[in-house]
């Protein structure tokens, strides 16, 4: 009895010790976001003398983070929707349809996964310029969708492969067209896979830095991650609290996704996604 209790305490201690490095910096940022710049410079571990909520007000209005949140939601929302649709379509095609060039297409998708955007950065910016999309959210949305698409596509492919083919055949016997089989039988069955892909797409596009950094020049179009990394207060000063408050604001949508959807994300990820 004693030994199990001891192991139990040891276990708690171990897991807590492992968790501290992950939690503590976030807590520090959270605490400092309610503090003042002077306080942080003097003793950044001390609690603020009161909650300086005005940091958040300033970040939201003064530093225009309301705009950046809007931009990020617009970009990530569009990318998520596009990837959801395209990955489902493409994933179904390479998983379930028999057509010439399927293996080649699969190879292309694999190649795209291991082709980092950096390797073709300069020609990509030229393409965007030639299309007249410079300095636009559209450029970020399209390039992000195109470059992120392969992984969700493979996830969807694995997912479709786990669905029994008999269901499609049953539909065909009933007289459904190939489109009908996809649209009304297979796609609905793949709902949890699609949800997983949507969450992936949202997390990754919300996180992305490179493409916004390359394609957005005007600050009123910046996404939140990019705006935080480039946040520069007037007068060549340091403004820690605004940056901390903005960072905490930026976690909002992620926390919502985590609390509402993470269980289903986890389910979707494993049920089919990675087993195929």
């Amino acid at each position: 009895m004693l030994s199990t209790r001891l192991t139990r305490y040891a276990l708690y201690a171990l897991v807590t010790a492992m968790a501290i490095p992950f939690v503590f910096p976030s807590l520090w940022v959270f605490m400092a976001s309610f503090s003042t710049n002077t306080q942080i410079t003097m003793d950044s571990l001390a609690l603020p003398d009161r909650l300086y909520l005005e940091n958040y007000v300033h970040a939201w209005t003064g530093a225009k983070f309301s705009t950046f949140v809007y931009n990020s939601l617009a970009v990530s929302g569009s990318v998520t929707a596009l990837i959801g649709v395209l990955a489902t379509m493409l994933g179904y095609a390479v998983a379930r349809l028999d057509f010439p060039g399927r293996r080649l297409l699969l190879l292309l998708i694999m190649m795209a996964i291991v082709t980092p955007v950096f390797s073709y950065l300069e020609p990509l910016t030229r393409v965007v310029r030639q299309l007249g999309l410079s300095n636009s959210r559209t450029a970020v949305i399209l390039t992000t969708t195109a470059t992120f698409l392969p992984v969700p596509t493979l996830l969807m492919r694995s997912f479709f492969l786990t669905l029994p083919e008999e269901l499609g055949d049953a539909g065909r016997v009933e007289g459904a067209s190939e489109w009908g089989v996809f649209r009304h039988i297979m796609a609905p069955l793949a709902r949890s896979g699609i949800l997983t892909v949507l969450i992936f797409a949202f997390l990754w596009s919300w996180n992305d830095l490179l493409l916004p950094a390359v394609f957005l020049q005007a600050p009123d179009k910046y996404t939140i991650a990019y705006a935080i990394t480039t946040l520069k207060p007037a007068g060549f000063r340091q403004d820690h609290v605004t940056m901390f408050a903005a960072s905490i604001i930026s976690t909002g949508p992620m926390i919502v996704v985590y609390l509402l959807l993470m269980r289903r994300f986890i389910a979707g990820l494993t049920v089919g996604g990675l087993r195929g």
């Binding site: 390359v214 020049q217 005007a218 600050p219 990394t229 480039t230 520069k232």
Partner: peptide, 10 residues
Amino acid sequence: FSQVEAAVVG
């Protein structure tokens, strides 16, 4: 009138 964060946009 618009301003650009020149230090980072390239």
